[in-house]
Each structure stands twice: as structure tokens, then as C-alpha cells.
Write a protein that binds this DNA or RNA. Sequence first.
DNA 1: TTTAAAGATGTATGTAAAATACATTTATTG
DNA 2: CAATAAATGTATTTTACATACATCTTTAAA
Lengths: 145, 145
Amino acid sequence: MHITRYTDYSLRVLLYLAVNNKELATIKVIADSYGISKNHLMKIVQHLSAKGHVEAVRGKNGGLRLAAKPEQINIGKLVRDMEQGSPLVECFGTDNECVITPACQLKHVLAEAMESFFQTLDQYSLADMLLPKHMKGLEQILRLE
Amino acid sequence: MHITRYTDYSLRVLLYLAVNNKELATIKVIADSYGISKNHLMKIVQHLSAKGHVEAVRGKNGGLRLAAKPEQINIGKLVRDMEQGSPLVECFGTDNECVITPACQLKHVLAEAMESFFQTLDQYSLADMLLPKHMKGLEQILRLE
DNA sequence: TTTAAAGATGTATGTAAAATACATTTATTG
DNA sequence: CAATAAATGTATTTTACATACATCTTTAAA
């Protein structure tokens, strides 16, 4: 069972911006902080921006900030947004070629399990990722202290 | 969010054997019924056999049968067995390079969500995949009627 | 009003996991 | 001992994902 780095990185961006609190941060600085590809992050940020999770300010002195308070950014919605179009199994996608699909009960059970996964994430907001005991550590690691 | 065809195919094999009820079925026949790779199925069946989900009989007139009654084959256990070693995100695997791991709360939330996924599957057995209204359809599609 | 910085966008390339194929070995039965 | 079927090991192909590169657009400061 797997979710992409694309989604993983999008969570890291939001976490960075939450710790950065209000101020603008550039994609380059975020990419450097995590040691990940700036180019890949650009696509992800574009998507996060289009989905309304972050605000992107173009031009000189531009950068990124959260589009809402951490309390209002839901982890479940975020992961759903970023993972959409990634079918759990063949029969969840287009060009399904599984012959038993019409008589198959498995897909319903798998769909229910996937929904359980997301409903668990739905219970958490970005703010829940910012535990007091970890804030100093995060600030130090991301060189924001 | 994604699980591999490897796991998907393993479920199909069990479903086939459950519909086939008791009698031996060869890998070739199962692969042909689903229109999938016999070679790939061989690896999967080997794994299913090693994990005790199916019994494999070698040699002439050999083949496969379920190692237990459908009621006793749990979908959650099966998917866990087949998906093991596939980390949900980078920090769940070996060679994790995410710098914030020690101060990151996300991994706990993701682990909880994944557990919800499997616990949902734990509630179902292979027998639950064999609804009376679908048995005739399955037998026909798999040419077992 | 020009220049530099920053995100937006489109295309191309690299890479690793997954799927598939091929070849050989081992076990079993008639 | 011949045929059949699973077991095993290696190699190749395919695909999704990640990354890189190039160009365009927007914005603010010099």
C-alpha cells in the first residue's frame, strides 16, 4: 500500500508553511530545507495553490503562505485532493480489464476500506501536526528558529 | 493510493479457487480465465502457498486448492501478507531521508489511517465475497459452470 | 522603465518498481 | 520414463513517478 511522494511532499510543504507562520517562503527555500527537488515541488505547489490550500505570490519578494489557518486545513481533504486519479486497484480506474468486475464483491470491500483510511485522516487538521513538544524541533530542523 | 496487481491477482486466485470449490485448478487455467500472465501468477501462487493461503500440489494432475474454508480466509490478513514491504510513505521504509521524521506527527496519523484500512478488511472473509446473487455470474465468467 | 526575482507551464529525460517473459529444476503420476 | 505441473532463478520490458530543463508571466524594487 502506497501513496506518492507527490502527496508526501505536499504535506511537508504545508507543515513548513505552518511552522513558518504567516511569512512568505519561496519554493527554493522549502526545497532546500527538505533536500528535495525544487522542480518537483513547483508542480506540487501549483496543485496546492489550484486546490486552495496555499496562496502563491508571484514576482519579486513573492513566495507561499497557507491559504487558511492550520485548524482549517484538513489532512483527509488534502490527501484526497493530491491522490485523486490514483486508483487503488485496476478496477477502480479507467481501462479496467478485470473480467469478473460485474460479479465481484471485492471492489466494494476495498472501497469501504479506502473510505476508512480517509475518514481517519478527516479527523485531523494541520494544527494537529503542530504539537508543542515538536515545534522547537521542527523550527530547528527547518532552520526557522 | 495504490495497491499492486500482485495483491490484486492474489485475491483473484483465491476467488477462483473458492468458486472452483475443492477441485484442483492449475495456474495456467486460472491465468487463462483472467487473461493475465501465467508467469506472474506463478510467483504470486508461490507466495500464497508459503503464507498458507493455498495448497499447491506438484506434478501431473497437480494444481491448487484453498488451504482452508473460505470462511477462514481473512481478507485483511491476506492483503497485509501480500502488501508487506510496501511502505505507505518514505518514512515508513528503510533508507528514509525525510529530515523532519523525529519531530513529525504525520507518520502517526498516517499509520492510524492505514490501520483503519486493514481493520475494515479484517471484518471480511473470502466467504463474504461469494454472494449467492453473484455465484452464477462468477462461474460463467470463469467458465466453471 | 528596466532588471531581477519568483511562480506558472510545458516538454523531456532519468529511474526504480512492477509486471512479464524465459529457462531450468524438482516433484508426482500414470 | 515420459508427461505434467509447481518451484526457482534470471532477465527483460513496461510504466509510473520523479526529476531536470527551458521558457513564459507576474511583480516589485532599483
